[in-house]
């Protein structure tokens, strides 16, 4: 067995994932190869350290808040769907009336209707763009309360 393959198999050996045959082949190689024995020892230390580093756990209060936040997000998801449906319905209704009662009404001067029409389109595009950006940035915007 070549040392390169032995180093690869060392991973499975340290993780207890080798089949019997590969394990025996590797052990045989290790018996006769001091360099690979040093590698085994180094990787054994590395895996032991990585296994034991751990991390600071959130407190019980934070865990409770964690579930409450998930529950709220589940509930608010439904609310957002209804709110969006309502807003779209009202917007369509408003646009319909704006078109029918004002933009297509020849009683108003053409220049006024064109001005209002372009301004309305611009406002809608801007509003959609701002809302879309806020939604996209909201999860990463943890600095919104920073005062300068």
């Amino acid at each position: 067995m070549e040392c390169e393959k032995a180093c690869l198999l060392l991973m499975g050996h340290l993780d207890g994932e080798l089949d019997d045959r590969s394990r025996l082949d590797l052990e045989q190689h290790l018996e006769g190869c001091a360099a690979c024995r040093r590698e085994e020892s180094a990787y054994r230390r590395l895996t032991a350290m990585t296994d034991s580093i751990g991390f600071i756990e959130p407190t019980e209060t934070e865990w409770r808040a964690h579930w409450e936040a998930i529950y709220n997000r589940l509930e608010r998801g439904v609310a957002w769907i209804f709110l969006s449906l309502g807003a779209v319905t009202l917007l369509l209704y408003g646009m319909w009336h704006l078109a029918a009662d004002f933009l297509l009404d020849a009683a108003y001067p053409l220049i006024l209707r064109l001005g209002v029409g372009f301004a309305a389109i611009g406002t809608i595009v801007l509003a959609v763009s701002v809302v879309r950006e806020r939604i996209r940035l909201y999860p990463t915007d943890r600095y919104e309360e920073v005062e300068l």
Partner: peptide, 11 residues
Amino acid sequence: MSRLFTARKRL
């Protein structure tokens, strides 16, 4: 196994 080997080598 090979990906773990690469990652551990880099670590």
